[in-house]
Design a protein around this nucleic acid. Sequence first.
DNA 1: CAGATATGCAACCCTGGGGTTGCGCATTCT
DNA 2: AGAATGCGCAACCCCAGGGTTGCATATCTG
Lengths: 106, 106
Amino acid sequence: MTAELQVLAALADPTRWSLLDELAGRPEATATVLAAGRTVTRQAVVKHLAVLERAGLVAARRQGRETRYTVRSERLDETARWMAAAARRWDTRLATIKQLAEGDDQ
Amino acid sequence: MTAELQVLAALADPTRWSLLDELAGRPEATATVLAAGRTVTRQAVVKHLAVLERAGLVAARRQGRETRYTVRSERLDETARWMAAAARRWDTRLATIKQLAEGDDQ
DNA sequence: CAGATATGCAACCCTGGGGTTGCGCATTCT
DNA sequence: AGAATGCGCAACCCCAGGGTTGCATATCTG
């Protein structure tokens, strides 16, 4: 579960979403390029990308003197499904409880 | 989108998941009860529940001198769907780019 | 080779958030 | 009424994490 929490923590930041969005628009991009249009420093972007990589939401590949990053949609989808499953689990458990309560009323 | 980020931030904490899990097992519960089995203080639990409520993952209802909390599965499901949609969006965008790239090759 | 470019690493600053304690207030019970 | 119970509020402590700057290192390019 900690892996999923890592993903959630990584996604709980607007700058990171912005980076992911921009990354989804290009086949791949370096931290320097991604930092170009932003107000934050390249170093800040690098840190964010590191967080995203640890979470598995992005893949880094060094080629020559530059490191290119790519979006990994699988992790996001996985986590989404995991959350949906949790929601369903809550529902069924609550339904069971409600049913038991109604039984007690009679 | 900030609403979804609020949900993600709320979910990026193990204690909060534990509370949600426990809440899903009972029809409703007070902060004091939830704090009973734990190592953390009631106040800590109260703070967590406040975060969860702001995110819409839990509903608070005061009755007499006690406040009872209930799980709200809808928000979780909504957010899960929102994430899944983002994942699909990334995929289609990347597919388009790849296709364009192949076209350029020829 | 020398200059330019792209990173990586490390030290530092500062705010937010998880956690605690102490205390006052409202509600319930006897 | 008086004691007990359940909360809410506020002040504080502490550290992870977002952000910055400065500098060393690696890789192209002319």
